[in-house]
């Protein structure tokens, strides 16, 4: 493992994109940063600008209106960027897949590196998913 890769893995900055979600995944993602789970001990930070991001967390079903935004955000991100689809809606569309506004799960719109299923996934599951993603690449 090269020096570059090592630094990248040790300092993942996360940008959070909530699609048409029910908010649960969003809260659980924030929950990962709070005292009980504290992702900062792995160097993971939540950043406010996509320009600073290394990981794009996408949750919620993507509707027709979000679709363009998601593409735009993905294109604005400095590469390399990892995309993680969180929750049943992000992975497959979940209960909203039958909805007439549904524009496809995340992987139909942008390439996805990891899926973390669950409705919502527990913070432990989110951390485990990200750790697996980091170890793989």
């Amino acid at each position: 493992m090269g020096f570059k890769d090592y630094c990248f893995k040790k300092s993942l900055w996360v940008f959070h994109f909530g699609g048409a979600s029910c908010n649960n995944c969003d809260i659980e993602i924030l929950d990962c940063l709070t005292p009980r789970h504290d992702l900062e001990r792995f160097g993971i930070l939540l950043v406010g600008s996509i320009r600073h991001a290394d990981v794009l967390l996408v949750n919620g079903s993507i509707n027709t209106r979000d679709k363009d935004r998601l593409l735009e955000i993905y294109n604005q991100a400095p590469k390399p960027i990892l995309v993680v689809a969180i929750g049943a809606c992000g992975c497959t569309g979940g209960i909203f897949a039958e909805s007439i506004t549904f524009a496809g799960p995340v992987d139909k719109i942008i390439p996805v590196n990891a899926y973390i299923p669950g409705c919502p996934p527990k913070p432990e599951a989110i951390i485990a998913g990200i750790v697996k993603l980091v170890n793989k690449s």
């Binding site: 090592y6 630094c7 709070t34 005292p35 504290d38 900062e40 001990r41 160097g43 320009r51 604005q76």
Partner: peptide, 28 residues
């Protein structure tokens, strides 16, 4: 982090951040 009941980042974190931004990431 300690004030907020958290564990906090590892000692070399600022260096990881800096070198990641400098070497790995694209400048837009």
């Amino acid at each position: 982090a300690r004030v907020q009941f958290r564990k906090g980042p590892p000692l070399l974190q600022p260096f990881y951040d800096f070198f990641k931004l400098l070497l790995v990431k694209e400048t837009i």
